[in-house]
Amino acid sequence: MSHFIALYGKRLSSAIITHFWYVVISITIAFIIAFILGILLSRMPRRANLILPVISVFQTIPGIVFIGLLFLYNGMVPSTVVIALTIYAIFPILKNTYVGIINVSEDFKEAAKGCGMSPFQILMKVEVPLALPSIITGLRISTVYTVSWAVLAAMIGLGGLGELIYAGVSSNNNTLIIAGAIPAAIMALLFSLAIDLLRKALIPKQLRRDNK
């Protein structure tokens, strides 16, 4: 073990840090964009049967494609990874924000209207809070996938935990594979744990249906 740390310790810790920031930065930007976009799209629910399939189709594009294409355009810089992951992460959040909001029952919206709320107040006080479980589910999906696709940053030589896995796979070095895979798995678990905590903090217990 100590041998391992002496050998890979530095490489591992820098890989973890890089990986972590890739995920955090991409997810933060993606969330802001997707949340706003989702709200805007929800203002035109008549297009729902048009908007949703389009989002869903885009969602099927694997993260590797975004990374690859941006790599060709943008070159081997960290922003390539961040932008690619951001674009990828937008879709699940966008879809869930949009679906969450348009699924808020008319009854609540009408009750809110009847109480004299303005459209903006209805959005902020009723629609978004009621869509929150769905939005957070989207955030969770995006985050888990982003941790997963961030592994591919190594594919274009940009570090992260993928670097170890990658190097391990190509040199048949199991220790290296494990050294990359286990921290990546743990990081994914920690992120999803963090989101669960966020969910608990934001959504009153009575509203949480324990499926996600």
């Binding site: 029952s105 009854d107 609540f108 009750a111 809110a112 009621l130 009153p204 509203l207």
Partner: peptide, 8 residues
Amino acid sequence: QQIGLFPN
């Protein structure tokens, strides 16, 4: 008639 109370 329907729920009408905000569940959140």
